[in-house]
Simulated scan of single mutants.
Amino acid sequence: MSKPDKRDEIVRAALELIAEHGFHGAPMAMIAERAGVGAGTIYRYFENKDVLINELYQEIEKRIVAALHQGYSREKPFRERFVHLGTTLLRYFISSPLDFRYVEQFHNSPFGVAFRRDKLLGDTTSGCDVIKELFELGVAQQILKDFPLVILFDLFFGPVVSLARDHILGFIQLDEAMIRHIIEACWDAVKR
């Protein structure tokens, strides 16, 4: 097995510490120490902490997008695509708790607010746009309720995030059947 490079070690350390302590509770010196590198080494890879935070989010988003696209087909019926995206996302979050905790912190920070505004209201080219694309299609074809995208996203992502959090914290135990039932309930909330 090959030894991870320094950049990978820094990213992993940042993910662990930020997920555990938040953005402000994980200074660069602490990240460097956890990664086993000198503080100056981080700046060879990342101009500053903001860049590290954003690049780490982009890496996590790439993993999520890869998971969402696995087995996804635009040829399948609309409801089946919706259920695929929802179950895949919830499964990803509960199987990758560090990624989930990071994403949750990111989206509840000033970084995430700007990102979310761009994603919902701006012109984006992110792979997660498969969900936005499906929702826009659903509204246009009158499959989904005629709500603004923000509301549709809240009805979809809100339960997914809340239940992933509760699963990770040990309040509930989600199995495959329950995951499917949850996403079908999300479908019931947004369908016409």
Rank of each mutant, 00 (worst) to 15 (best):
F46A: 08
T124A: 15
I42S: 08
M30W: 06
E33M: 13
Q70D: 13
R116L: 15
G71F: 06
P97H: 10
F78M: 09
K62Q: 13
K49A: 03
G71K: 10
L56N: 03
V65C: 05
D123P: 03
R34N: 10
R63M: 06
S96C: 11
A35Q: 10
E47A: 14
T124P: 08
V51G: 01
E59W: 00
K49T: 00
Y102I: 02
R79M: 12
K76L: 11
Y43S: 13
A26N: 07
R116D: 09
D99Q: 02
G22H: 04
R81L: 05
L15I: 04
H84K: 12
A66G: 03
V37P: 09
L52G: 04
I143Q: 03
R12A: 15
A19F: 05
A29R: 14
H69N: 14
M28Y: 00
I42V: 15
V65M: 02
L17W: 07
V83K: 04
T124C: 13
E75R: 15
F78N: 03
K76M: 10
M28E: 01
S96T: 07
R101W: 05
R44D: 04
D99F: 11
M30S: 14
V103W: 07
R34C: 13
I64Q: 09
E16M: 15
L98F: 14
F78P: 01
D118W: 03
I60Y: 09
L134Q: 06
G25S: 11
Q141S: 11
V103P: 02
L85C: 10
I64A: 09
F23N: 02
A29G: 02
A32N: 01
S126Q: 05
Q105A: 12
D50R: 08
P110I: 03
L134G: 10
P77E: 09
P27D: 05
V51K: 13
R101G: 10
I60V: 15
A67W: 04
K49C: 03
P97R: 07
R63G: 06
F106Y: 15
L134T: 08
R117F: 12
